[in-house]
Design a protein around this nucleic acid. Structure first.
Length: 485
RNA sequence: GGCCCCUUGGUCAAGUGGUUAAGACAUCGCCCUUUCACGGCGGCAACAUGGGUUCGAAUCCCGUAGGGGUCACCA
């Protein structure tokens, strides 16, 4: 087999849809798996949708996800330019050539004319609308005369009236359609730029792309590509159509709800490796029970056979779990660095050692954005209901909580040096002296210190973070609450 | 509506004529434990449906239903 060459051909729309990223990921993985090349091509043929700075978004996502391309607009390559708007002349040349080869024709109908015909078309009884273009019967000579005279035109693909077209897809298998159901779509627009259909075929051929990866939405139009390749006499690449990624309700991931783009997740604090790992598994199965994959491992194990053909629902719960796995695997220092901004959102006190909090949170954090609500009590003791002291399993009630908390308070107060070791010794000592269960002291102390039902870390750790003065102050508040009963 | 595609637990999915139909997430329970989380153990839970073919079907064929896509001078 000749060198595998895949491409990622996003449109600069300003954001990177997660499904699109996955397509790019798979294209990248396939190339790497076979020691081939991964090419980046910018599909900016739609001038109306052009967004300033959108290309940078693409470079940026590729860079932080580690999908390094071997050829592209920014780094060049032997088959450039890699931006479609800079290839205008090429498309024009091949468009004319295709007309000569009989695979297309010039059309002078205006958008308005066609829209008018479409509007008066009775869609119900006669099947789908198909434009019967009078221009398809024009001779090429006559058409070129009109073009020379300055008439505006487009180039349309010529589709045989009869017969069928069959193509092979690596994941969906053999697909055959009637030519009569195919529309004679525009290949070269009146602004001189190609449509997606045409630009793709020309570029993929010229750039020697061997495997074309794209979403299933292109499946129905693929026969037209084959017709094009055949008309040119070009070799047809391997098609690999990928099913969509959908939401829980089966609907598309939407930009509006902030669950569609890579940035949405990245900005929420999801780890890049976790996102990549997760989407790799959404639609691809390694054939083993492995769930955690580094990019490197994916590069080694990716295979076309593992691709599935049914749509996959994006399950945020599993992404969260994976993210948690990655968080736990990262070094404490890295975790601290990433968690820091989230600490600053709720903690302003200077006497708190944030590193201590990192140690508490490292194993307990699944997603970074949940951090503030979990640690806000360090900053300020929240108002809490006195019944928080009552815990059935810990065997605590208002009465023994008051007693035990008081005893713990005395023990803690007499500590010379305030550190976790000593706090623990004091508390354990209290437990022994009182002859009660661990929880009967720890629970009320933790409650007094945090004012919360659940906290990262227990009484000892929290006391360690809070320090002597604040800890004792909070316990005093707790004692007062309990004595008011 | 025409055409094309898809259909194994709530979700991702293994499975390619003979399996007790994997595994993971979620969920539930238990253990660990000073709460929570982590970790460990265990449970619940699936072949859309109707016909064939076959000794035997999640696997092959046909129909039905449901879902998705597509029918632009957007990609």
């Amino acid at each position: 087999m000749s060198e595998v060459r895949t491409r990622f051909a996003p449109s600069p729309t300003g954001y990177m849809h997660i499904g699109n990223l996955r397509t790019g990921l798979y294209a990248y993985l396939l190339a790497k798996r076979y020691g081939g090349k991964f090419i980046l091509r910018i599909e900016d043929t739609d001038q109306e949708r052009y967004v300033e700075g959108a290309v940078d978004v693409i470079y940026n996502v590729l860079k932080i996800t580690g999908l390094k391309h071997d050829e592209g607009p920014d780094i060049g390559g032997p088959y450039g330019p890699y931006v479609q708007s800079e290839r205008k002349d090429i498309y024009k040349k091949y468009g004319d050539k295709l007309v000569d080869l009989g695979g297309a024709y010039y059309c002078f109908c205006s958008k308005e004319e066609i829209a008018d015909v479409r509007e008066h078309y009775n869609n119900g009884s006669q099947g789908p609308f198909k434009y019967n273009d009078p221009c398809r019967y024009l001779s090429t000579e006559e058409a070129r005369k009109r073009i020379a005279a300055g008439e505006s035109y487009v180039i349309r693909q010529r589709i045989p009236d009869t017969g069928t077209t069959t193509f092979e897809d690596a994941v969906f298998g053999k697909i055959t359609v009637e030519n009569s159901t195919l529309d004679e779509s525009v290949l070269l627009k009146s602004d001189g730029l190609p449509t997606y259909n045409f630009a793709n075929v020309v570029d993929d051929h010229l750039m020697k792309i061997t495997h074309v990866m794209r979403g299933v939405e292109y499946l129905p139009s693929t026969p037209k590509y084959n017709l094009l390749y055949n008309a040119f006499g070009w070799e047809i690449p391997t098609y690999i159509h990928l099913p969509h990624i959908v939401k829980e309700d089966g609907k598309k991931l939407s930009k509006r709800e902030g669950d569609a783009s890579f940035d949405d997740f990245y900005n929420k604090g999801y780890l890049v490796d976790a996102i990549v790992n997760y989407i790799a598994l959404l639609g691809w199965n390694p054939g083993t029970k492995q769930e955690i994959f580094s990019l490197k491992e994916l590069e080694e194990q990716f295979s076309i056979e593992g691709l599935s053909k049914s749509p996959a629902m994006f399950d945020i719960k599993k992404l969260n779990w994976l993210n948690g796995e990655y968080i736990r695997k990262m070094p404490l220092e890295d975790f601290h660095k990433m968690a820091y901004p989230y600490y600053k959102k709720v903690i302003t006190r200077k006497d708190i050692d944030l590193m201590k909090i990192s140690r508490l949170l490292h194993d307990r954090t699944e997603v970074f954005y949940e951090i503030p609500q979990n640690i806000d009590f360090f900053e300020k003791l929240p108002e809490y209901d006195i019944n928080l002291y009552v815990h059935k399993k810990m065997k605590t009630n208002l009465v023994n909580s008051a007693e035990n908390l008081k005893a713990a308070y005395e023990a803690l107060k007499s500590l010379d040096v305030w550190n976790e070791e000593n706090v623990e010794a004091a508390l354990k000592g209290t437990i022994q002296k009182l002859g009660v269960k661990n929880g009967q002291v720890f629970w009320p102390v933790r409650t007094a210190l945090s004012g919360k039902q659940f906290t990262p870390g227990g009484a000892i750790e929290i006391a360690g973070v809070l320090g002597r003065d604040e800890s004792l102050r909070r316990i005093e508040i707790g004692l007062k609450k309990l004595s008011d009963v």
